[in-house]
Design a protein around this nucleic acid. Structure first.
Lengths: 349, 349
DNA sequence: CTGAAAGCGCTAACAT
DNA sequence: ATGTTAGCGCTTTCAG
């Protein structure tokens, strides 16, 4: 079967008895087209099932209506939802999304190497949790790639970030208010290849909350769970094996909290009495085990990131960083969802 | 900041002292280029950071090196993994992936309406679990869009499907072999907008397994869990409320099984003694609750789908369906993972 | 309000 | 082995 290319703008022009220029104008809603002409052209175009060839339009205009979304993975709980939110917004605005996982070192390196050439491929870029350096941001800016970062900030580009310091603070403060004074932390990978800054910020929030209550940090109470359930399980086991185990634990993700839950089961313990646990995310399954958590809104963040990006793009020039307060806005979209993993409440349905 | 377009092929040609045609050939590894010339051109191109403009190349060749992946959602457990597997393969082969969620009725309709125009946008299409009709498949074929379906099959295109009948059979048979005779089912949405065929096939496998053991199907034992954890929970509640509740339950997804687990907790029951449960997927958290499950391999399926698609594309013509046994191959990549939700074994670590 | 024509940057025949 | 040139299908001045 050979590649059959549909009708071209010329076919439509001929059929409608006008010039190609008029067809182009009419179909794109540009001014200076008689209403009667426009109707006629539209009618012919739809009858012939005409649609402008994107490659040709791109070559002529230099705009692709394509956006790249680069995240560590596309199948993680958080990232897949962020991406879903971004795509929904992009598609609704007539853009297509090229998604690309750049988590492992090789793909990350390749991605960073190609930054300069991105301008010809897409109209914009959303980078999620990748901590690109200021030099790399500069490179993107020089190449003229409209960019929005998410989960981290640069000098040059608008950023969509949740206040992870606050996330850590909220979770920890909740435990403190319940009277806990010895609070463990199941954190993320400290020396992660992605130089993830999130664990550090959440930890800082934890530390600050403790300080407000006059409690000093015990380094032995921090165990890495590598952001996975099995990792959380092992971290909790280490915590429980301590001579002086914590009475409460702040897990930096629900999945790690699930692992911690399992470790408690194995030890014959139950929450909230033996150990209270608070997680982060509000994973769908958090409710099932009655896990108290700090709900994040990855879909919404993805949508906001896309929205900001398109705003830039459609202003025809990428808005570079300035003193505008909208820049690097720390969205505070997070909410404590108290459940019985920390409080002796009945979860109901 | 204005859009700065990088060096064009002409700039490189001038700089290297050759014609644009030679540059094009040299850089694309085509034959009939003196090795010395090629080296020279490559050197100049890399010094100038030249990269062919994809839009121009697309217009000239008619090939985009773009593939669309359409799935009900991009953030479901199964779909996000399938997509990840597909993207990895595509990127490794120098293609980019446009992912697109087409689950809800509107986007699904819009997607189906645009099928004809897809040929100009991408080189190929992977459709996951969408059950497009034979007419729609025909439309795609006529438009010349190389296509691979996953999770369902059409006459015209290669399909990558797990044998869902077998999946249902394996799960149910496991329960039967343990001696259960009254086995409930938590199924997916029966009248789902997507006309999902998976629940039906798995149910048929269940029915067949029962029949092999001379057991008749009790329709009251089938409850829909809508493929969500809360749905599974409610379905299990209904099952437990029966006068004559099942002694074992086959849940068509792990997430529904998690919900069922919760319903058992609420009822003060525990597995496998009160009710044995088997799920499907081998979700990361299945291990945490010791859920027996039938492991699927969505990432691998995604990779295979991409691989088949690219094979077609790179043969220069989409391979339409024929008697080849490779067509519609029912991959049997599934594996029973026995855990203590059905057997009184110690899970260990 | 409409049309003619010059590109956009590359590839692919065709020549040499 | 290399160069010349005619498109690819659209957008966008510039005339009228």
């Amino acid at each position: 079967m050979e590649r059959r290319r549909g009708p071209s703008i010329e076919d439509v022009a001929r059929e409608a008895g006008v010039s190609v220029a008029t067809v182009s104008r009419a179909l794109r809603g540009l001014p200076n087209v008689a209403e009667s002409t426009r109707t006629k052209v539209q009618e012919v175009a739809s009858r012939m099932q005409y649609r402008a060839d994107p490659s040709a339009a791109r070559l002529a205009t230099g705009r692709t209506r394509l956006v790249q979304v680069a995240a560590p993975t596309v199948d993680g709980w958080y990232f897949s939802r962020f991406i879903a939110g971004a795509i929904d917004h992009l598609v609704a605005s007539g853009y297509e999304a090229i998604t690309r996982p750049v988590g492992d070192p090789e793909s990350r390196a390749e991605f960073l190497n190609e930054l300069v050439h991105l301008e010809k491929r897409v109209d914009g870029l959303i980078v999620v949790d990748l901590n690109i350096s200021e030099e790399q941001a500069e490179e993107l800016a020089n190449a003229g790639v409209a960019t929005v970062t998410a989960g981290f900030a640069t000098q040059r580009f608008p950023a969509v970030v949740v206040d992870d310091f606050h996330v850590g603070w909220v979770a920890t403060n909740h435990l403190l208010e319940l009277g806990h004074t010895r609070i463990g932390v199941i954190s993320g990978e400290p020396n992660h290849p992605l130089a993830f800054s999130i664990p550090g910020l959440r930890l800082a929030g934890y530390t600050a909350a403790l300080a407000e209550h006059g409690i000093a940090v015990d380094p032995a109470l921090e165990q890495s769970g590598r952001f996975t359930a099995p990792g959380g399980r092992r971290a909790m086991e280490r915590l429980l094996a301590m001579d002086d185990p914590p009475t409460a634990v702040f897990a930096m993700s629900d999945e790690m909290a699930f692992g911690a839950w399992r470790a408690m089961q194995d030890a014959g313990l139950s929450w909230p009495d033996d150990v209270a646990i608070v997680g982060i995310d509000d994973h769908e399954l958090a409710e099932l085990v009655d896990l108290t958590t700090v709900r994040l809104a990855p879909r919404r963040l993805g949508g906001v990131a896309a929205e900001r990006l398109l705003a830039n793009i459609e202003n025809r020039e990428p808005v570079v960083a300035d003193e505008d307060e909208a820049r690097n806005a720390s969205l505070r979209w997070l909410e404590l969802v108290p459940r019985s993993s920390t409080m002796g409440i009945d979860p109901g349905r």
